[in-house]
């Protein structure tokens, strides 16, 4: 009896700690998610009573060319953004782990863009890359290159948005790698050096294996960031020109809040959720099989 009461008390104590957090997650994440699922099975403009459609919205997704265009843009952006943010982040982190003067100042400089909101970054960048009046073209002109259309050219717009995103995100990957680099065991490095390995070999055979869990984590994290890119698109191009920078999340926003098709918008959002889930589970399974302890 006393034992059972002890279990109960322990359970209550546990819930007292976990309760507030659980309530927040349930109220702010799970509840809206369930609601969105119910909406996704209706045609609803947010005001008039919704009309039940069953799975029709999900069927429409299969042959909606605009959706597949935005999926293509999102994948192109992810393929550009994830490897470059990780590679550049690593290079910057190695540079920042050197023992030079003012290193703390440099570290701060690299991190500041990450702290700035993406909305502010986007607005600033749209001035810099304005084809008629921006400073990027001014710079190109001075070094003798022809002026570019940047955000107003359907061919260039994704690359430019990726550049702007990188400017904001390098700080994050660099800081994570910096921490990982400092964790690399000093005794192993010393041992390798004593054994006659040069600096590159020490880096390749000792430091890089230490970075693998962090890298797997970063790939997942940056992939999610890229798949959910919205604020930069909203503040720079609104999906244009000619929808060539419309990402999946921007398409969801446009469906729900511009054309007021909440039902179909929610269905597409669920599609994105499924996609992200599959990718994440895939990465976790890979890291378990490869014995990289990222999660």
């Amino acid at each position: 009896m006393a034992n059972r009461r002890g279990v109960l008390a322990r359970g209550l104590t546990g819930w007292a700690f976990a309760g507030p957090g659980t309530l927040l997650v349930v109220g702010l994440s799970i509840f809206p998610a369930v609601w969105a699922f119910l909406i996704s099975r209706t045609r609803w403009n947010g005001i008039a009573p919704p009309r039940q459609l069953g799975w029709a919205n999900y069927q429409v997704m299969a042959d909606d060319p605009e959706l597949w265009e935005s999926v293509r843009h999102t994948f192109a952006l992810t393929a550009l953004f994830v490897p470059s943010s990780i590679l550049i982040g690593l290079i910057v982190a190695i540079a920042l782990s050197q023992d030079i003067r003012f290193i703390k100042f440099y570290r701060t400089c690299i991190f500041v863009p990450f702290v700035a909101s993406a909305a502010a970054t986007g607005i600033l960048a749209s001035y810099v890359f304005n084809p008629q009046f921006g400073s990027a073209n001014e710079l190109l002109r001075r070094v003798g290159f022809p002026a570019q259309q940047f955000l107003e050219d359907p061919q260039q717009v994704l690359v430019v948005i990726c550049l702007i995103a990188l400017w904001g995100q390098i700080g994050f990957t660099a800081v994570v790698y910096l921490a990982a680099l400092q964790d690399a065991p000093k005794d192993l490095i010393e041992a390798a050096t004593v054994d006659g390995a040069n600096r590159f070999r020490v880096f390749w055979h000792v430091t890089v294996p230490e970075l693998r869990p962090v890298t797997v984590f970063m790939v997942v994290w940056q992939t999610i960031t890229a798949l959910q890119l919205f604020d930069l698109v909203y503040t720079t191009t609104r999906g244009g020109p000619l929808n060539s920078s419309q990402t999946i999340v921007y398409y969801v926003f446009e469906l729900a809040f511009q054309t007021r098709r909440y039902g179909y918008g929610s269905a597409v959002a669920y599609g994105l959720f499924a996609l992200t889930m599959v990718l994440t589970i895939g990465m976790i399974l890979y890291s378990r099989r490869a014995r990289v302890e990222a999660f």
Binding site: I30, V34, W44, P50
Partner: peptide, 19 residues
């Protein structure tokens, strides 16, 4: 059970207040 309760509550929401 909690998820089912949520689903019901949400269903109540999307049908809105009586018109």
């Amino acid at each position: 059970a909690a998820a089912a309760a949520l689903a019901l509550a949400a269903a109540g929401c999307s049908s809105g207040s009586p018109t």
